[in-house]
């Protein structure tokens, strides 16, 4: 008993200063060992040439991998272009359509909203592989629904995911179906949380509905839009499941984004050194974009994760 009390007192004094660390340490240790350590490992690997199926040791190549990727690899350039196209195309349409849906839902009665909200949630949490599967079924050239709808207008069937010209837009359309509800849901929550006074003031001043939207709604909603934008942009770089199920990056390289290209180099060709270098370039791009966006969000005084 006596001993316990002294141990207790000792910890009591320690506690006041360092207790935060004991709560936080397990998570930090976990994240350091499964994220930081592997990333350092792959950074080192990226300066080597190593193919896992040939039983050869790592051979140091310096920055050769990076030089090849940036200056000599035409496929990297193509994947980079496809990544940007995919990102800009899907995210901008998701925001346009999402804003429209949010504004409309905000205007109609509570009862319908409740029902529609539930429907909106489904694509967001649905297993992405199954989303891909559903769209593969829809796009199927022989028995898919989309070609069935085309027959209504007497149009000839299209091989949606099989042709270089339509493959990328087809994958993008599935992505837009999956994530527009996400944007709409978040913007709707943002709209519902807006204060009423600015809108009353705009009404009193005789602002038109466009003016109210442009000068009151949009600025007030912009913090919420930025948070949604950050999440969508980061997730867009991670798109993998949809592409894997729908096109496997093909035909040719028409739907191969950087993420998929890196996967293929690592786990189809087993050039793990080269793939590590690719993954680090991807990481750098993503980190720069996220730092810029997080800076903007924090400078706007939004307490991300705050008690709002």
């Amino acid at each position: 008993m006596h001993l316990w009390k002294r141990v207790g007192l000792f910890f009591c004094s320690l506690r006041r200063r360092y207790i935060w660390f004991f709560f936080l340490a397990p998570t930090l240790v976990a994240l350091i060992s499964i994220v930081v350590f592997p990333l350092v490992f792959s950074l080192s690997l990226s300066f080597h040439d190593w193919n896992i199926i040939r039983a050869k040791a790592w051979s140091w190549t310096g920055i050769a991998n990076y030089r090849t990727i940036l200056f000599e690899d035409p496929y990297f350039r193509s994947a980079f272009k496809v990544t940007l196209l995919y990102l800009v195309g899907t995210v901008s349409l998701q925001f346009g359509l999402g804003l429209l849906v949010a504004l409309i839902l905000h205007r109609i009665t509570e009862k319908i909203i409740g029902f529609l909200r539930t429907a909106l949630i489904l694509p967001i949490t649905m297993t992405p592989v199954i989303v891909g599967m559903i769209w593969r079924l829809m796009y199927n050239p022989d028995l898919g629904m989309l070609n069935y709808f085309l027959t209504w207008f007497r149009l000839s069937p299209v091989n949606w995911t099989g042709m270089p010209l339509t493959a990328l837009p087809s994958v993008m359309m599935a992505d837009i179906w999956e994530w527009t509800p996400f944007v709409a849901l978040i913007l709707l929550a943002g709209l519902q949380a807006l204060p009423q006074e600015p809108f009353e003031a705009a009404l009193v001043d005789g602002a038109s509905s466009w003016q109210t939207f442009r000068y009151v709604t949009l600025p007030l909603l912009s913090p919420v839009m930025l948070v949604a934008l950050l999440i969508r942009v980061m997730d867009s770089f991670k798109t993998f499941d949809l592409i894997f199920v729908l096109t496997q990056g093909g035909p040719g390289m028409s739907t191969e984004i950087l993420n998929y290209y890196t996967y293929r180099y690592g786990f189809k060709f087993f050039h793990l050194g080269y793939a590590s270098a690719l993954s680090w370039l991807l990481l750098v791009v993503v980190t720069i974009i996220s730092i810029v966006l997080v800076r903007i969000i924090r400078s706007k005084g939004i307490s991300v994760g705050g008690a709002r």
Partner: peptide, 11 residues
């Protein structure tokens, strides 16, 4: 926010 593909090779 890290793309999982960045960590998958070392993991």
């Amino acid at each position: 926010m890290m793309p999982p593909v960045a960590a998958i090779i070392p993991i």
